[in-house]
């Protein structure tokens, strides 16, 4: 179950990287200077860190350490 959820989360993360929704627009400029397409990917990267925290916490391959 955990493995299935993890795989689904990873696939979702991959799909979220292919963001076609901010393709042709720079506005709004977040904080007044960050084009939205760039801000999206910055937020995405922060989200990835959270995803990996979940993977490491709940699916750590501790059997490899034996």
């Amino acid at each position: 179950m955990k493995r299935t959820v993890a795989i689904l989360l990873i696939i979702t993360a991959y799909l979220l990287h292919q963001d076609i929704w901010f393709w042709r627009t720079a506005r709004p400029l977040v904080f007044g200077f960050l084009p939205i397409g760039l801000f999206y990917h910055v937020a995405y990267v922060v989200g990835l860190s959270l995803l990996f925290w979940l993977l490491v916490t709940y699916l750590w391959p501790s059997h490899l350490d034996e």
């Binding site: 993360a13 991959y14 990287h17 397409g37 760039l38 990917h41 990835l48």
Partner: peptide, 10 residues
């Protein structure tokens, strides 16, 4: 950034 950084971060 999207081409290399965020894809690498995943």
């Amino acid at each position: 950034f999207g081409l290399m950084a965020s894809s690498s971060a995943l």
